[in-house]
Each structure stands twice: as structure tokens, then as C-alpha cells.
């Protein structure tokens, strides 16, 4: 089985995937082997879903958000309020897997590196108002397309920029806030400017390990079982590892002078409700047929 991952090899997400591959290859000697061909230099992340569907690539380690055009319901992973194993427990996993099989020709193995979400980071100290929220309209936030709808619904000014341009924008004041995961935030040097982190987190990371359906069906039952078992095991392991690593990086930024501002009370509830609302509204707009059931499993 050939495989690609969505970040460069030295990045944490790719490293995590390589650990999974190593486990599979150790246990799977003579049964099944995964041969990693590389990351974005081989197939750009937003095409990895299509490459899996067409069978060009057998296994991908790619966020569902990168191929929403194939499976709009994939957004449910970032909107989810449950852990991956809770979703496996309540039947949600089988349900969403069925949708991925039908729409992306993909068999889902695991939702890895889960457990952390996105934060808003600001340059100026945000003041909590009576509601326990902050004045969003004072923020010019750098965003990615994934969460721009949500940030706009808060009333903030949103600028979509590639990560490479953000450093300069923060330095020059073109934007005064940024939204990203804690994980990897400081690798861009952004923490030098954004000295405030706004809690709580919104959305969740949605990295999926998926395998081409035809390739999956062609595997021996023994190989299938090995992959599935390793995937479930690694899902949990990477969840914990991701949380620990995020915690470590968050602490490092706090040690570097970053302050955490937590929304409270009604402001906090409104913030989280708006995040959920934005995801579900977009999913409903794109394909309403499975929404009710998805809400039952993931909310």
C-alpha cells in the first residue's frame, strides 16, 4: 500500500502518521505493508482526497476539511463534541464511514490526532464585557477558509491569508488577531506578536487515516483486521499524545509571556453556539440528507 500525509515529513502530524505506519509494518510483516511516498511535495493536501478516490494513492493521512467537496459531511469531525471512541461506541463511526465509502470511495481507518481545537490569538489585550465575551468587531483576524464563516458571524473583520504571509501581517498590523491550533503555532513565530490567547477552543482537528475502498476490499481478512485493530489502538494513543504535546506547546508560549483570556458565562455559550451553528449550517447547505442523524451521533 502506498501512502501520503498532508504535512511535510518533519512536522508533528506527519511524524504521528509515520508512527502508525511503523506499528502496522512491524505487526504486518508478510501480511500488509505501508510504503509512505511523502507529503505535500507528492500530492498537494487538497487533492489527496481525490487521489484516494481515484486509486492513485492507497492510504492518506489528511484532514476531512481538505476534501469537503467530496464529502461535505466530513465537517462533522470538526463540529463534533464527542471523542472518537464515543462516536465509535454510539454507531456514529459506522454511519459516517458509510458516507465516506459512498462519496469518496474511502474506507475510514481512524480519526487521529484528535482532541485539540482552534484558538483565537490577539495582539492587543481583549477586554471582557459584561456578557463574558469580547468586542469582536475590534479584531482583524487572519483566517483559513475552514473557519472564516464562523469568525465573520461573530462580527470580526476576516482576512484569509496563507500561513507564509501571516508573520509580516502581524508585524505590520494588517491583522491584529490570528486563528490557528496551539499545536504548531509557535513554529511560525506568530507567538512573538500575539501575546493573548482567547479560550475556549472552537472546532476540532479532523485528521483522518483513510484507505481506498477497492484496495481495502482486496486485502485478506487477516490484513484488514490488523489494520483496523492498529487504527483503533492508535486513534486513542495519538489523541493522548496530541493533547500532551499541545499542552506542552501552550505552556511554552505562556512561559514566553502569552496570557490566556477565557470567555465566561453567556458570552462563552454564545461563542460556542455560533461555532457549532456555522459548521452545521454549512453542512446543511451542501447536503441536508444526513444532517439529522449526524447531529444525533456527533452532538
Amino acid at each position: 500500500l502506498n501512502a501520503v500525509h498532508f504535512t511535510p515529513a518533519q512536522n508533528g502530524y506527519a511524524q504521528s502518521f509515520l508512527k502508525f505506519v511503523q506499528k502496522v509494518n512491524e505487526k504486518g510483516k508478510g501480511v500488509v505493508q505501508i510504503n509512505v511516498r511523502g507529503g505535500p511535495e507528492v500530492v498537494p493536501p487538497i487533492q489527496q482526497g481525490a487521489a484516494l478516490k481515484s486509486g492513485l494513492i492507497d492510504v492518506i493521512d489528511t484532514p476531512a476539511g481538505q476534501f469537503l467537496e467530496l464529502v461535505p459531511e466530513g465537517e462533522v469531525f470538526s463540529a463534533s463534541t464527542k471523542t472518537p471512541w464515543e462516536v465509535r461506541e454510539n454507531g456514529g463511526w459506522d454511519f459516517i464511514s458509510g458516507i465516506f465509502e459512498k462519496k469518496a470511495n474511502a474506507h475510514l481507518l481512524a480519526h487521529v490526532d484528535a482532541g485539540s481545537g482552534f484558538n483565537i490569538f490577539t495582539i492587543d489585550e481583549p477586554k471582557l464585557n459584561d456578557e463574558g465575551s469580547i468586542d469582536w468587531s475590534s479584531l482583524k483576524i487572519r483566517s483559513s477558509p475552514l473557519y472564516r464563516d464562523f469568525l465573520e458571524s461573530l462580527g470580526a473583520t476576516v482576512i484569509v491569508q496563507a500561513p507564509g504571509d501571516v508573520y509580516t501581517s502581524l508585524e505590520r498590523g494588517v491583522v491584529n488577531a490570528n486563528a490557528y491550533t496551539v499545536f504548531g503555532y509557535s513554529s511560525f513565530g506568530w507567538d512573538k506578536f500575539t501575546k493573548y490567547r482567547v479560550d475556549p477552543q472552537f472546532f476540532k482537528t479532523d485528521v483522518l487515516v483513510s484507505i481506498n475502498k477497492a484496495k481495502w476490499d482486496a486485502l485478506s481478512p487477516e490484513a484488514q483486521k490488523l489494520l483496523a485493530d492498529t487504527a483503533v489502538e492508535y486513534e486513542r494513543e495519538s489523541y493522548d499524545a496530541n493533547l500532551a504535546e499541545s499542552e506542552k506547546q501552550a505552556q511554552a508560549m505562556i512561559d514566553g509571556g502569552q496570557k490566556v483570556i477565557s470567555l465566561t458565562g453567556a458570552g462563552r455559550d454564545k461563542f460556542l453556539a455560533a461555532a457549532t451553528q456555522a459548521s452545521w449550517a454549512r453542512m446543511t447547505k451542501r447536503d441536508p440528507s444526513n444532517i439529522e442523524q449526524l447531529k444525533k451521533f456527533f452532538q
Binding site: L68, E69, P145, R148, V160, R286
Partner: peptide, 12 residues
């Protein structure tokens, strides 16, 4: 009926 998802959905 394929489309791409950026700030708006663009028909492919």
C-alpha cells in the same frame, strides 16, 4: 455536480 469549497462553492 462537483464543486470546490473556498470562500464560496465554485462549480468544478
Amino acid at each position: 455536480g462537483e464543486y470546490e469549497t473556498r470562500s464560496f462553492d465554485m462549480p468544478k
